[in-house]
Design a protein around this nucleic acid. Structure first.
Lengths: 130, 130
DNA sequence: CTTGACCTTCCTGTCGCTGGAAACTTTATG
DNA sequence: CATAAAGTTTCCAGCGACAGGAAGGTCAAG
């Protein structure tokens, strides 16, 4: 199977699939003409990567997860630990964003937003008016 | 005032301040020895940038906000629009992250996480087991 | 035989810095 | 006064995870 079909099948852009090969995540064979040739196993890997990336795992996490995926003697604890760390990361990011959201919501709410120059947003950004 | 004092005062690393000059956000004067010399106005701008970046505005947004900050004939509507767009962006990001959070939380919860290989997380990443 | 759709590699750009090297000046210490 | 340490300058490289595009080879259809 050539790269555009693999792209279709996995939901990843061809560019991304080539990049994944470059960084050693997949190792498709080559046809006589130099074209990449994706096996069923390669396709499984690509789909796995598409799903993992879709859940926000870093490429390095994906690399580890992929090796665990292929290791039938894996310990589920290893998988869980990676997922848990990622979840904690997401929790932190949400907390940060919520804090920004609260601040910005207040500022946007307070600004009348007309053609006059006085603006609580600018005042806040300018710093403590003290 | 030299760069490390400006860094101290603004809360920005010296490297970042130099970078901001390189991309045209600040234009400090120079002393005879070639050292940068930050005026009060420069310091105001740096503090403004520190606060704006801290609220997650992009550099380009900061550039616009800075020009509005300095334009005493600005329309607050222009400021508000930028802040509102950024807020909408944050709302979207929070929604995305919450969706990932829900999925990951379920998966992490379902995985026993011991030394056995069977793992709902890996199964989910491998795709519809259908 | 030509057209157009593939495929290949290689290089550049994204965003917002951060780290480091090499060379200068200034300040502090012996 | 000499030297060492600290501060400054410029420039160049790298991060993550690709995306865009150029130049060229290959293949299937009409």
């Amino acid at each position: 199977m050539n790269i555009s079909d693999a792209a279709q099948d996995s939901g990843l852009p061809a560019k991304t699939i080539r990049y994944y090969e470059e960084i050693g995540l997949v190792h498709p064979g080559r046809l006589a003409n130099g074209y990449r040739d994706y096996s069923d196993q390669d396709l499984h890997k690509l789909r796995f990567l598409q799903r993992s990336r879709g859940l926000g795992f870093s490429i390095e996490d994906c690399r580890t997860l992929l090796s665990l995926y292929e290791d039938h003697n894996r310990a589920s604890a290893d998988v869980r630990q990676i997922a848990k760390a990622h979840l904690d990361d997401i929790d932190r990011k949400i907390a940060e964003l919520k804090s920004l959201q609260t601040t910005l919501r207040h500022l946007v709410h307070q600004c009348h937003g007309d053609d006059r120059p006085d603006c609580p947003i600018i005042e806040d950004l300018a710093g403590p008016s003290a």
